[in-house]
Amino acid sequence: MNIWFTLCQKELHASKIWITIHALIFTLTSIFVVILPSSSVKLVIYFSFLVIHLVYLGIWAIYSVLKEWRGNTATHWLNLPHHGFLLLSAKMFTGYLLLIISFILGHFISIFAWKLSPGLITNLFGFSIRQENWGSYFYDWLVHHSVEIILFVLTTSLSTGFLILCAVLLAKSVEKNHFLAGFGFFLAAGIIKPLFISNPVQTITEWGNISSNHQELASFVQTFGGLASSFYIGNLMIEILFTLLFIWISSKLLDQYVQA
C-alpha cells in the first residue's frame, strides 16, 4: 500500500497543470451558473457537466499515460518492479478522486444554483411538461435523484475510463497502426457493451430499480434514456463487470505487451 500511495502522490504532483486548469474552469462555471438567471442555460451547463464527467476518467487516462511518453519517463515508469495493476490503479485512482470531488461538488452547486432561480423555462429539448412548472420539476428531479445520478456517473465513468485506458495501452502494444488499433478497440467495446444493457433480454439486467417513481417526471426522465435505464442495480452491475474486465485487460497489456 505504501508503494501505491507513493505512486498516487507522484500522479498528483505530475498533474498540477491539469488540476489548476480543472479548478479554474470549475470555479468560473460555478460562479456563472449561480449568478445566471436563465434556467435553460443552466440546464445546458448541467448536462454538459454530466457528459464531461462521464468521459473525464477516459481523458485523464489518455493524458496521464501519454504524459509518461512525452516526458520520456515511460521507460522509468515501465521499469518499476510492480504488477501492472498497481501502476494503473494508482494512475486511475488519482483521476477518479478528482472526478469524485469535482462531480459531487458540482452537482450540489447546480442544485443550489437551481434553487435560486426555479421556474424560468424555455422548451429547450421539447419536453412535454407544463412550462411554468418545469424549472421546479427539474430542481425536484435533481434533488430526488441525486444518489442515482451520482451513482450512475461514478459507475459509468469508471468503465468508460478503463475502456479508454485499454484502447490507449493497446495502441501502445501494436507495432504499427497504433491509432487504428486503439480506436478499433474503443469502437468494438463501445458497441458490444450497450448490448448487455439495452437488448431483447434486458429484463435480466433491469432489476433492483433504485429510482423514485415520479409519474409527472416520467417523460423528462425518459428523455435521458441512458441515465434513466441505469437506475437499475442490474445495469450498474454490468458496468462494474465491464470495468473489472477492462482493468484485467489493461493490466495484462501493460505487463506483457506494451512497448516503449
Partner: peptide, 20 residues
C-alpha cells in the same frame, strides 16, 4: 517481459525524471 524489472535496472539514453 516488463515484469522482469525486479531483476533489471534500465536507463534509456533520453530518459526523463519527474522534474517536479
Amino acid at each position: 517481459s516488463r515484469r522482469i524489472n525486479h531483476q533489471v535496472a534500465y536507463v534509456a539514453g533520453d530518459q526523463g525524471l519527474y522534474d517536479f
